[in-house]
Simulated assay, not measured.
Amino acid sequence: MQHLPLPPSSRRGFIGLLSGFSQILLQSHPGCGLLVLLAIAAGAPALLGGALLGGLSSMLTAQRRGYPQADIDIGLYGYNGILLGMLVSITFAWSPTLPLLIIVTGGLSSLILAPWMQRLRERHWLPAFTFPFVGLSWLMLALAAPLQLQVQPSPLPLLSDLDWLNVVAAPLRGLGQVIFLDQPLAGLCLLSGLLLADRRAALWALLGSASGLSLALYLGWPQHGALAGLYGYNAALAGIALSQVHRRPWAPLLGILLALLVQPGFTVLGLPALTMPFILACWLINAGQLLLRSTGTMGGRTSED
């Protein structure tokens, strides 16, 4: 039987969807996205449907709204929807409302991201990163009771033994936690995707995740959480994001530290941290750099006057 080639529009959409999966790791690389997709399919197949539905709804919303096709092609209108689809699937018990909730929140993530990106480019706003995902996730959790959504209890990490195998696997588990998985195989898939897209980013991701483990154990944070990678994923994302903008190591190192120090504060606030510590760390460093540049420019003008 002869296989007909996919039409260009379908091929383009498929590549855009894979790029959306790679944008979870702040990359635009279909091969990286495919490895992220495989990590979900192998590690948590029950989450795959929600991830695909969320990614497609956010992409289709962007297309219907006429947002720049170049942004859609590189996955910028996919990753927030993918994360929302996975979060809904893992957080709430199944009901007929869940697919509709994924579609709505995926579409809303694009509606939030578009004006933000426009202001980023025109007025130099701070980047949104995964803020649409975080904000909509907090809103869903707050509205769970009115929407009659049953929150499933999160399984507690079972890791407790501080042996060499758990310590070695913990940084990979930290990478896997980016997509809600505490499995070393998932982390290995994500690390392979990063190596395929950007080796420097892969090294910073691994360093960030390992730093989360080290600091958590040093400060006496819950050991089971540290070994499960719960303190690694925000630091890993901060390392990736800041290493792409700053060639000198001080910025990603500081971002990793800030993400780790900010994360416990969300427990005090009674909010799930999700990826907000990584976002705040990057915002603080970017805002500080903009302030220094502004101060330097003003000082230069003053000296010239």
Rank of each mutant, 00 (worst) to 15 (best):
M117R: 15
A236P: 09
H3R: 07
L84V: 00
R121Y: 13
A41W: 03
L237N: 06
S89Q: 13
G13C: 04
G13V: 04
L175P: 05
G208F: 05
I285H: 06
P249Y: 09
F131Y: 05
P68I: 00
I15W: 04
T295H: 12
S89M: 10
W138I: 11
V36I: 14
I102R: 09
L227N: 01
F131N: 09
Q63T: 02
S109W: 14
I112C: 15
G255K: 08
S109Q: 09
D163M: 02
L98D: 03
L4W: 11
N234E: 10
I285M: 07
R200S: 12
L37H: 05
I279H: 08
L100R: 14
T130M: 07
P96C: 10
L84Y: 04
L136H: 01
D305T: 15
Y231W: 15
G288R: 11
S243W: 08
S209M: 10
N166G: 00
G75M: 04
Q148F: 08
H3C: 02
A51K: 09
P264N: 07
S303I: 13
T297N: 08
D198Y: 01
G174P: 05
Y218D: 06
Y233T: 00
F266H: 09
L143Y: 00
L111S: 01
G225W: 10
T275E: 04
G16I: 05
L206V: 07
L38P: 12
W125I: 12
R173S: 10
L242E: 12
G107I: 06
Y79T: 01
D182L: 01
A259H: 12
L147E: 02
W125D: 13
P146G: 09
L242Y: 11
W116P: 11
G265M: 11
L271S: 07
Q152P: 07
L113F: 12
G50F: 11
I103G: 07
L190T: 13
L25M: 14
R293A: 06
L48F: 15
L271F: 05
R301C: 03
L217E: 04
L113S: 13
D163Q: 03
G50P: 12
M140G: 05
I179T: 10
L227P: 02
F92I: 01
P132F: 07
G16N: 11
T302F: 08
L217A: 09
A128N: 03
V36H: 00
G270H: 12
M59S: 06
L37T: 10
A62Q: 05
G300Y: 06
G225Q: 14
G66N: 07
N234K: 08
A241S: 04
L120P: 01
P132E: 08
I90E: 04
P155A: 15
L158G: 13
I40V: 15
L258Y: 13
G270C: 05
Q118E: 02
H124M: 14
G229N: 02
G106E: 04
A197G: 12
P30T: 12
I40L: 15
W116S: 02
P272E: 04
V245Q: 08
L213A: 08
A114G: 00
L47W: 10
L188H: 13
L56C: 14
